[in-house]
């Protein structure tokens, strides 16, 4: 199957970026302009894990979990602030060609144990008890609870959406409780990583929102500095989403970014605005603030909660 490998070597390198402190703008510029690189939507579709910038210590376990979720053959490349994008792009292409030609893959960083032992436990050996109990195949099953929008008390799914989620600002870890796809509870576990002023440029902020609206092409154009060619951008953002007194709503902020202005308004504790929102609305709301503004607002809200109100 060597012809398949030579054919694959010519393909664009599938990369999943885990963006650390200070490198958000460079990574976005890299993917928008460098040829031969493709940003994978999830690590399952990627072969290279690009660790950009420095990852703080508390985010290391999350990086290990992320690294182990890439299918084999995989490889990790670090990109420190000083290295120019042409060099990293060449290194990525070269790493991908090695992998395509059968270079050895990286082993797991975490031990190979299921979250809870389940083999052979319980009457049927799948670790469960009765209908809903136990940890069938390693995890318990979600339990019902009150819903804040619609009186049906159905299962509440709780999970920590990690620092390297493609739809959240890099570094932000949220503990979310979901009923269906509506967020019922949201807590901030870690603040977004600090990014330089360049990441708050209106073009980059607008590009992030356009990507969430499904407009890959227009987002790349914005990142490269041209006007986006797309229809119904303003209409797609729901009116009144994330409206704060003095900061307008997500639509106004997107309009301002598209016309080059940077909106001044800062939200007051955005994390508390998440419960009640559907998943897509929540991601649009978080992306409708510049990374710096959002980080300051979340930090300010966190200090507020530490001081007993």
């Amino acid at each position: 199957m060597s012809w398949l490998r030579t054919l694959a070597a010519g393909a664009a390198a599938p990369i999943y970026p885990s963006i650390g402190a200070g490198m958000l703008a460079e990574v976005e510029q890299l993917f928008a302009s460098a040829p031969g690189l493709r940003r994978a939507a999830s690590p399952r579709d990627a072969a290279l894990l690009l660790v950009a910038g420095d990852i703080p210590a508390e985010a290391r376990p999350a990086l290990d979990r992320l690294h182990d979720q890439l299918p084999h053959p995989r490889r990790t490349l670090a990109w420190k602030a000083g290295e120019p994008s042409t060099q990293i792009s060449a290194r990525l292409n070269e790493a991908w060609r090695d992998l395509a030609h059968g270079a050895p893959s990286e082993p797991d960083r975490l031990p190979d144990e299921p979250p809870n032992p389940w083999r052979g436990i319980g009457p049927h050996g799948q670790g469960g008890k009765g209908m809903m109990g136990g940890t069938p195949r390693g995890r318990p099953m979600a339990m019902t609870g009150a819903d804040i929008r619609d009186g049906l008390e159905l299962d509440r799914y709780t999970a920590r959406v990690g620092p390297f989620a493609p739809m959240l600002p890099p570094g932000l870890t949220l503990e979310l409780t979901l009923q269906g796809d509506v967020i019922v509870e949201a807590h901030v576990l870690s603040l977004p990583f600090p990014q330089p002023e360049e990441a708050d440029l209106p073009a980059l902020c607008a590009a992030r929102m356009l990507r969430l609206l499904g407009l890959e092409g227009a987002a790349d154009r914005m990142t490269r500095g041209h006007a986006p060619r797309a229809a119904w951008i303003r209409g797609a953002v729901p009116a009144g989403l994330g409206a704060w007194p003095g900061a307008g709503d997500a639509r106004d902020r997107l309009d301002a970014w598209l016309s080059g202005r940077q909106e001044g308004g800062a939200p007051r504790d955005p994390a508390r605005a998440l419960p009640g929102l559907e998943w897509h609305e929540a991601t649009l709301l978080l992306a409708s603030f510049a990374p710096g503004t959002l980080r300051r607002a979340l930090a300010e809200a966190q200090d507020l909660q530490e001081i007993p109100a």
């Binding site: 992320l66 797991d108 190979d112 299962d155 799914y157 920590r160």
Partner: peptide
């Protein structure tokens, strides 16, 4: 392996199975 099979949550971990009485 177990870490490869874990569901993708941007590096985060879930509490329960994703299969639930989905609202």
């Amino acid at each position: 392996t177990a870490p490869l099979a874990a569901p993708f949550l941007g590096g985060g971990t879930p509490d329960t199975h994703a299969w639930q009485r989905y609202h």
